[in-house]
Each structure stands twice: as C-alpha cells, then as structure tokens.
Amino acid sequence: MFDVPLFLTFAAIAVACAINLVLQTHPISSALSLVGVMGSLAVLYLLLGGQFIAAVQLIVYAGAIMVLFVFVIMLLNAGAEKRPSRRVLGAAVALPLLFTAAALGAVMITTQIPKTAAVKFGAFQLGGAASIGRELFTRYLLPFEVTSILILIAILGAIVLARKEI
C-alpha cells in the first residue's frame, strides 16, 4: 500500500540529485549528489524485490566507488570550476533536443508497454542472496569467472598507472 508514495518519493529524489550533480560547480557537491542517487536507487531496488542488489548497490557503489571518487577529488585538489562560457551555445541547442528525446522516450515506453501488472512490494521472491548465488554459481559460472579476470586486469592496470614514471 505504500508502494506508490515510496516510488514517487525516491524517484523524485534520484532525479533531483542527478540534476544537482550536473548543475553543481564543485566536484565534492557532485559526489554527494551521486551518493543521494545511489541511496534512493537502492530503495527502488528493494521495491522491485532485489534485496541482494540493493545491498550491493549500497556497499559497492555508495561505499567503495564513492569513497574512491572523493579520495581522488581531494587528491587532485580540484576547486569549483568556472561556468563554461563557450559551451552555452552548445547547451542551448543540446538541452531542448535531449528533453524532446526524453519526452519521446517516455511516450514510447508508456504506449509500448501499456498494461503491465502493478509492481507490488514483496511480490518478487527471487531477489535474495540464495537464488542469486545459485544462478551465479551454476548457470552463470563462466561469466562470473571471467569477471574475476576482468577485476584482476583492472587491479594490474591501476597499479601500472599509479607508478611514478608514466
């Protein structure tokens, strides 16, 4: 019964924080806005029945990745960026086009998928750690192992990039 207000509240928070991310001039403000987006999206994942994904979203995104971003911002000592002057024309052309694309996309989505069942909290039972782990270690075992190789390559790349003589 609280599905509709919860969705509306947290979707509005997510969109508002995303717009704030683009509008703020200081990178730290943008990073905090991105944390707001991540947190509200985690609540939306819970509404969709993805408990495990919601936890992963909070731990990995809002925890690890954002700490990395804030760390890099403080390391680079990046101040507030000045308002771009020569990009105003591009923005004046691009923004109406993008909003038109957004409106078209919304209309297309709502007409293509007109009658779907309502998303009820608790209706989807497969989002727990047990069922996801079972799928991940049986059917998606090969992609899972390939992902570990990807992360290994990323670690090696980060170490190589962080050396002094590049």
Binding site: D3, V15, V22, L98, A102
Partner: peptide
C-alpha cells in the same frame, strides 16, 4: 499503481541527465 513503465521512464531520465553531464 506503479508499473514497469514508470521504472523505465525513470531509467530514461537518469540516462539523459547523465548524457547531459
């Protein structure tokens, strides 16, 4: 009631805001 289409619209909005950024 909230349907899948609402989530798709939210996703499209976030994607466009990210592109603008």
């Amino acid at each position: 009631p909230i349907t899948t289409a609402h989530y798709l619209v939210l996703s499209a909005a976030l994607l466009l805001i990210g592109t603008v950024g």
